[in-house]
């Protein structure tokens, strides 16, 4: 394990760097690899190439990495809190709640009053959604996979219905209806530096909060009684992790809509290779999650170029089979 662990870090960093370079070089316009290298080396490039690379591709690639890293960490942390490998912001309905908050901010025009309204409402709704799912699934004491899933489906459906209501009310104004639809489909098309600056501080607070509790999350894996016995304030840790994942999910939804399955797929893959300890799982999920969403966005941009696929389509195509695999495995385990 140690050798594999030590090899993983440079490999993950190399993967992220290679995908970042590819994200800069590949796009719908004809910017060559040579021009990318020229720009990176500080040489002269045509102004339109500089604009495309610096104003369009770079912020989009960094945003993809940030969201992937954040959502993967949030997924890993939620799986620890719920002691359930199926927990993910999308599956638990947290993303749907965040999307409802974001849509409400657009629909009511609060974003025009203050841009902070968008992440604020998205995070608040994501937090409320997670608390409801947690409350519903923890009522019986031990958290059963089925209970968690059902609570997530219920909360997600309710948030989805409320979002659909707002969408139908907003269709009278084409611009608002189109904006809301774009949010719901999830994607990074048209995202730039302002979106990155919007998401970064909120996601950083969430990520640092999760990372600060990596040992507590390991303790929670042993069960509540064991965790309390070694001095973990289980209730406080759960509350903080739920707040942290809400901040990450809310900020992510606020800038890119609902991008599902990232928080499910990445921690699962990392756990398979590097084991369940959150001290390794969280930083590795951060790096792999960033690389995963960067790669997914690259595919979304290239598969039917010059048109773009929705990012959520790519992540679902990878995530849904893994979700089914985990579900079947969980059923076999409980049988």
């Amino acid at each position: 394990m140690p050798l594999r662990r030590w090899l993983s870090w440079p490999l993950l960093l190399l993967l992220g760097a290679a995908l970042l370079l590819a994200a800069l070089a590949l796009g719908s316009s004809s910017v060559s690899w040579r021009q990318v290298l020229d720009l990176l080396l500080g040489r002269e490039v045509p102004s339109w190439v500089r604009t495309i690379l610096i104003e369009v591709r770079l912020p989009r690639a960094l945003l993809a990495f940030l969201l992937g890293a954040g959502l993967s960490s949030a997924g890993a942390a939620l799986q620890g809190v719920f002691r359930n490998p199926l927990a993910d912001p999308g599956i638990l309905g947290v993303s749907a709640c965040g999307a409802l908050g974001a849509v409400l901010a657009i629909f009511t025009g609060l974003v025009g009053w203050s841009t902070a309204a968008l992440p604020l409402l998205a995070c608040a709704f994501a937090f409320a959604g997670t608390m409801v799912v947690y409350g519903l699934s923890a009522r019986a004491g031990a958290m059963d996979s089925g209970d968690v899933m059902l609570a997530g489906v219920g909360v997600g459906s309710l948030a989805g219905a409320a979002t659909a209501l707002l969408l139908s009310l907003s269709l009278a104004n084409y611009a608002i209806g189109a904006q809301i639809l774009q949010w719901l489909m999830g994607g990074l098309d048209g995202r730039g530096w302002p979106h990155l600056r919007l998401a970064l501080p909120v996601m950083m607070v969430g990520w640092l909060l999760i990372l600060a509790h990596r040992r507590d999350l390991d303790a929670l894996l042993l069960g509540d009684a064991q965790a309390i016995a070694i001095g973990v304030d289980v209730r406080a840790v759960r509350g903080r992790i739920i707040l942290a994942t809400s901040l990450i999910t809310g900020a992510s939804v606020a800038v890119a809509g609902v991008v599902g399955f990232v928080g499910l797929v990445v921690p699962h893959l990392v756990r398979m290779v590097l084991g369940p300890s959150h001290r390794i799982l969280l930083p590795a999920s951060t790096l792999l999650g960033g690389a995963f969403l960067l790669g997914a966005d690259l595919l979304a941009r290239r598969v039917i170029a010059p048109q773009e696929l929705q990012l959520g389509v790519i992540t679902a195509a990878v995530g849904a089979p893994i979700f089914v695999h985990l579900l079947v495995k969980a059923r076999r385990g409980s049988a």
Binding site: I106, G109, V111, G112, S114, T115, A116, A117, L118, P119, L120, C123, N173, A175, I176, A178, Q179, G192, P194, H195, R197, L198, A199, L200, P201, V202, M204, V205, L243, L247, A251
Partner: peptide, 24 residues
């Protein structure tokens, strides 16, 4: 810390038009 981050996020996006097309 959360509120400060949200406030920073709010100040970060210079163009409300990016988030609200009604501003165009």
């Amino acid at each position: 810390a959360s509120l400060v981050a949200l406030a920073l996020a709010g100040r970060a996006a210079p163009s409300p038009a990016l988030l609200d097309p009604r501003r165009l």
